Simulated assay, not measured.
Amino acid sequence: MAIKRSSDYRGVAVAAVILVAWFALLAYLLQSSFDFSSPLTYLFILVQTHLYTGLFITAHDAMHGVVAPGKPKLNKAIGTVTAFLFAYNWYPRLLPKHHQHHRHVATDKDPDYHSGSFWPWYLSFLKQYITWWQIALMAITFNVLKLYFPLWNVILFWMLPAILATFQLFYFGTFLPHRGEHPADNRHKSGTQAKNHLWAFISCYFFGYHYEHHDKPYLPWWQLYKAKT
């Protein structure tokens, strides 16, 4: 008789750590005093940006079914929540676009790809994923938050990190790996950064190892470093 393996909840635990850390730090920063002359202020902005990026990376892993393997409803729920917290992205809309990217990487059918320089590509990327209702919800949330918290706290620790995270995700996860020409034997049409696990984590949760992600999309972000040779 075959023995049924227990479910792997490590991905759920990792997702929970990111989600709780993002919420706890945001709650703390929104009501804390800060000093523009203090390096700690800018460190907090960078940490919150990284946690915002972690929300999207978690949603991305859910698109590959690796947050809660074998638990599709839980996996989808986590992906939906984390995508929504990242500027009100809608998981069911992101899911087909991301798999289209994997099927047609760096072609005219790839929604993430644009044959051009950084800024035109970035704007093209935003147009693919940002909707008017997201902008409206962000505007409503901004105006609600500033009723309860100081304006500059809302700008620096809620709004700015979300914007910076889009740059982080685009630059390290799309622009750098997919720009330029790739050798004919590069079947994933994806580049990869030099092996440095600390920088790979800090820059974009190991997604600088982008060829490795396309080659082994079943690996969650926290195991992706193992594919780097």
Rank of each mutant, 00 (worst) to 15 (best):
Y122P: 08
S38R: 02
N153P: 03
F207H: 10
L85K: 07
Y211W: 15
A68W: 11
S32P: 00
L19T: 15
S32M: 05
L46Q: 06
D35A: 06
G173K: 01
F125I: 08
L164T: 09
F206E: 15
G180M: 05
F125P: 06
Y205S: 05
H102N: 03
A106K: 02
A162Y: 08
V66D: 10
Y42I: 08
A165H: 10
P92D: 03
Q128I: 00
N75F: 06
I135R: 05
A15F: 11
S117Q: 06
G191Q: 11
E181S: 13
S38G: 02
P217D: 01
G173N: 04
D110H: 13
K109W: 12
F170H: 11
A87Y: 11
L164Q: 09
G79A: 03
C204K: 00
K97I: 11
W133K: 14
V12W: 09
F36G: 04
F149G: 00
A194Q: 15
S6E: 10
Q168M: 05
I78G: 07
A139T: 14
S37A: 14
I45H: 03
A27K: 08
P69F: 12
Y122C: 09
I155D: 02
H210E: 12
P39R: 04
L151W: 06
L55M: 09
A13V: 08
L198H: 02
Y211T: 07
L55T: 02
Y122Q: 10
K97G: 03
G11F: 04
P150Y: 03
F149T: 01
T141F: 10
Y42Q: 06
